[in-house]
Amino acid sequence: MLGMGLVALVALPPAMNALGETYLVSLFSRILIYALVAVSLDLILGYGGMVSLGHAAFFGIGGYVVGILAFHSYEAEPLFTWPFIFEGTENGLLTLPLAMLVSAFFALIIGFFSLRTTGMHFIMITLAFAQMLYYFSVSLEAYGGDDGLSLYARNQLPGINLGDDDSFYYLCLGILVIYLYVSHRLVNSRFGRVIQGVRENERRMQALGFATYRYKLVCFTIAGAGAGLAGALIANQTEFVSPGLMHWTRSGEILVMVLLGGMGTLFGPVLGAIVLLLLEEVLAIYTEHWMVLLGPFLVVVVLFAKRGLYGLLTGRKP
């Protein structure tokens, strides 16, 4: 089934171009990017048991890294002059890793504070810190403030023309597949075992001899880097970044994707991203007030379909 899904995703651009629905290629690029950020959230949520309501912050930071680097590169105005002059860049080989690095750094800081708490406190604190970064980005007048920042073009990568929607789509698909494989290795490694043990019973893990706080912090940071990568891609896809990327409702949306698809699985969040974003598109055709339907739909999913779609399809428990 997974193979069929992958074949369908690979065949999507030529099929859509043949049908004249080129819009769907860019819609699916967006879906793949959200799938990436949802998988990264599932690493802490489904595997680590950390209910973060601030994951969009790292998504937004990744976007802003790309946006700000491109801005300085275009304006030829140095981002900083010490210890060396750095005038920004539009080279994807630099921007994507930098986006991951900066997001990971912020995740480390935010995790350092929030992981001192658990449960309800943790939810509220991750939400609050994400909102803090949201307001911070609003206050960045030099980079458009509330209105955001437009890119003049997508980043460059050797051998790939990212300006072409089909190529960009394949880049997103390739990155998602690699990310899924890396995550698969991660959750089955010793580290992954520890993280799942913490989800089950943190106190027991400490009694076994694990410094659980540090493992959780490392996991939180890794997830932040993944979200940053997705953010860097979305900035390129839309050629635009704005504070809206890290608004807390976006964190909620990503959380919904994970739960809808099936948390604690790697393909569940991908499925969740596809279904939620397509559902939004379809509902929006019928009414501009589609959220009035989506809201109760979420309530029903939570109350009655806890295993998520992936669980329903495969019969696996979360």
Binding site: L53, I123, T249, L255, V256, M263, F297, L298, V299, V302
Partner: peptide
């Protein structure tokens, strides 16, 4: 987590 998601749905509504 369930509480967060359901009440998030309520907000949208």
């Amino acid at each position: 987590l369930d509480q967060v998601l359901a009440t998030f749905g309520l907000i949208l509504f």
